[in-house]
Amino acid sequence: MAPIIILEDISIEYPERGKVLDGISLSVNKGEKVGIKGANGTGKTTLLHIIDGLLTPDNGKIFLFGKEMKSEEDFREARKKIGFLFQDSDDQLFSPTVEDDIAFGPLNLGWERKRVKEKVEEVIKEFGLENLRKRFSHTLSYGEKKIVAIATVVVMEPEIFLFDEPTTALDEKTERKIKDFILQQKEKTFIIVSHQDNFLKEVCNRLYELKNGKITPIPS
C-alpha cells in the first residue's frame, strides 16, 4: 500500500530565523507511529503545521492519503481526516463548556445532530470527562486541558494524528493516559514531536531527529 504521508524535499525559511527546514523528506505508512525528536526551536512545530497545510513551505511537495496537496482546497479535505493536537491547549479550547468544545469539530464536519451527540457522549466516556463536561474549559488544570484537547481531536475520527509536544509538563498519571491512548490506536497513523526521549521510545516504532533543518533516522 502507498504511504499515507509523503513529504518531498520540504524547505522553509523565516526572515528572522533563517532556514528552519532544509530539504526534509519523509514517508509514513498507515498505522505507523513516527516520533520526531528535537531541541526547542528546531522546527518541529513548523513541520507539523506544514503537514496540516497551516503553513506553506517555500519548497517541496506534500502527499496525503495518496494525493498531492496543491491548494488550500486539497488541505481542507485532508484536514477532515487529520487530528492536530497543539502544543498549547489554550490555543485549542475556546468554547463555553468542555462539551461544546468537543462538539465543535464534528459540527464543522457537518455531521447530523444526533450523530454529533452520540459521538460526543462516547468520547466523554472514553476519556472519563463526565465530571468536567459542563466546566468552562478555561478553568481546567493544565493536565485536564490536555486531555480535553485530545478529546476534541479524537471525536472527529481522524486517520492521522499530529501531536505537538503532547506530554510536556504533565504529571505521570496524565502522561500514562496519553501513552495508553496512543498505544491503543493500532490502525491510526501518528506523527509525534517531542523533546522527551523516553516517551517517544515507548510509543513510537520509528524515531527521527530534527537538527539544523535536516531529519535523520535514529536506529532503534
Binding site: 497543539f86 469539530g105 464543522n108
Partner: peptide, 13 residues
C-alpha cells in the same frame, strides 16, 4: 491568529 489557526485545523469554515 493562533486560535484561528487551531479552528482551521479542526475544519472550521
Amino acid at each position: 491568529t493562533r486560535l484561528r489557526i487551531s479552528m482551521k485545523a479542526r475544519s472550521f469554515i
